[in-house]
């Protein structure tokens, strides 16, 4: 009876995880004329794809780094607030809105007649070309990923015992030293988790890349979309997909949380 209960999960995993990955790997060995070949893999190591990979990593890195830079101080501030759960909720709230809607909202803000340019015009500044730039892409990326970074960061910072902070102050640490020497090392697991949940999806962004960056930023995500929908070369698309999965696995490996839990252990 107990074993029967596992069946739905096994079926689910099979249909939605194992078979798709198997198909992906399978397709990656066929070219556009359905010949069994390694040419897709050779192609992936060509200069243009290498460039694309590097640029994907670079933008994912930028988005992750800026998100972390925004979220860490934010988490520290929210921890101090009286209604911390309320403020956290306010910042998490935009995740309820569809990502495409938010992206379109940014098109409105960044476009030639948009909010930013209106303000710039009032201040007598020249018109800025914001839309279809990589700066806009990073800004929107950071905005979209803030809640995902903030949650794990806040959770780990918030779970640090107040007495740790008092102890550090007692031993002479200034506010900055408390953050650097106690809070940061004790929240490192939250940082890792946050980096993981931002970097991995940022690596394969394609919708906001298209809409915000236009063709200024070409990443692996946009390349997959192009191969499947425009070139209809499923083999090449799958090959890029396989590499994306590999990259993600490597990142997971690096940001792996230690099994040894950090915290004040049992007495």
């Amino acid at each position: 009876m107990r074993r029967l209960l596992f069946i739905p999960y096994i079926v689910w995993m099979g249909i939605f995880v194992i078979i798709p990955i198997g198909l992906l790997v399978g397709f990656s060995f066929f070219d556009i004329e359905d010949n069994l070949t390694f040419s897709n893999y050779r192609e992936f190591f060509s200069w243009s794809y290498l460039q694309m990979s590097i640029s994907s990593f670079w933008y994912a890195f930028l988005i992750t780094a800026f998100t972390l830079l925004v979220c860490y101080p934010l988490a520290l501030i929210i921890k101090q607030l009286k209604l911390k759960m309320f403020w956290l909720f306010i910042i998490i709230l935009p995740t309820w809105i569809n990502i495409l809607l938010k992206t379109y909202a940014f098109i409105g803000i960044f476009s030639r007649e948009g909010l930013v340019n209106n303000l710039a015009a009032q201040l007598g500044l020249p018109e800025l070309q914001l839309l279809f730039s990589d700066v806009a892409f990073v800004i929107v990326g950071v905005y979209i990923f803030i809640p995902f970074m903030l949650l794990p960061l806040f959770n780990s910072i918030n779970s640090i015992d107040q007495s740790m902070i008092s102890a550090a102050q007692d031993l002479g640490a200034t506010r900055m030293q408390v953050i650097r020497k106690v809070i940061f090392p004790l929240s490192i697991e939250g940082v890792k988790a946050g980096v993981q949940v931002v970097f991995i999806p940022a690596l394969s962004l394609f919708m906001i890349t298209r809409l915000i960056a236009g063709n200024k930023v070409v990443t692996l995500g946009t390349a997959i979309e192009q191969q499947f929908l425009t070139a209809e070369n499923w083999g090449m698309g799958s090959t890029i997909g396989v590499f994306l999965i590999l990259f993600m696995m490597i990142i997971m490996l690096f940001t792996r949380t230690k099994s040894k839990t950090i915290g004040v252990g049992r007495l």
């Binding site: 015992d161 007495s163 008092s166 102050q169 007692d170 004790l186």
Partner: peptide, 30 residues
């Protein structure tokens, strides 16, 4: 942090990310 007073806390408040030596050295390193 600027008072010449030190405290032994009720729950000890030892830093879990540092070993015994580094816990004791914390104040001196600061």
């Amino acid at each position: 942090n600027v008072r010449k007073v030190n405290t032994v806390f009720q729950d000890y408040a030892l830093f879990p990310h540092l070993n015994v030596y580094e816990n004791i050295a914390f104040g001196l390193r600061i």
